[in-house]
Amino acid sequence: MSEHSPQEIRAEALESLLVERGFLTGEDVDESIEVYSERVGPMNGARVVAKAWVDPDFRVRLLADATSAIEPFEFQGGEVQKLVVVENTPAVHNVVVCTLCSCYPWALLGLPPTWYKDPAYRSRIVREPRRVLVEFGLSVPDGKEVRVWDSSAEVRYLVLPERPAGTDDLDEAALAALVSREAMIGVAVL
């Protein structure tokens, strides 16, 4: 039974008690898996980024008040009460963290990857962001400022990456397919 961690056995014991009581069902758990595997994920944030690249008016509204700007997308799954989109430019690179827990814009990016929630990233990205980004394969030039957004309240942050060169002939859907989760957290560029 070594592949079952103590946490797994404990969680399953708790689940069996609470299912017996009718507090939740196995189908509820299946639904969480389905929603966050199929419907809520980085593809949502990627649509926002691609629209900002092709629609200058939307980009302006997104950077001024992202919460209102994304309303028409009607994203589900995880309340984002206030969204702020921060824009990468030739002079500024942005990267997002939550050092106190693991706050993350679920509705736009889905559930966070394990590395985002682990102590190494949470402890180091505020103190030595350039060194951490190099571990992700991203070397930020010395002259470029690195801004770390530590999500300490209910405001959620999304990075608007720079549009890659040579993509002028791509439409919005093709552009969205280029946008990675890592680029929207700010640990990668496109």
Partner: peptide
């Protein structure tokens, strides 16, 4: 590190 800033709410 040079050119680094942290933003908190």
């Amino acid at each position: 590190e040079p050119g680094q800033a942290v933003y908190l709410d």
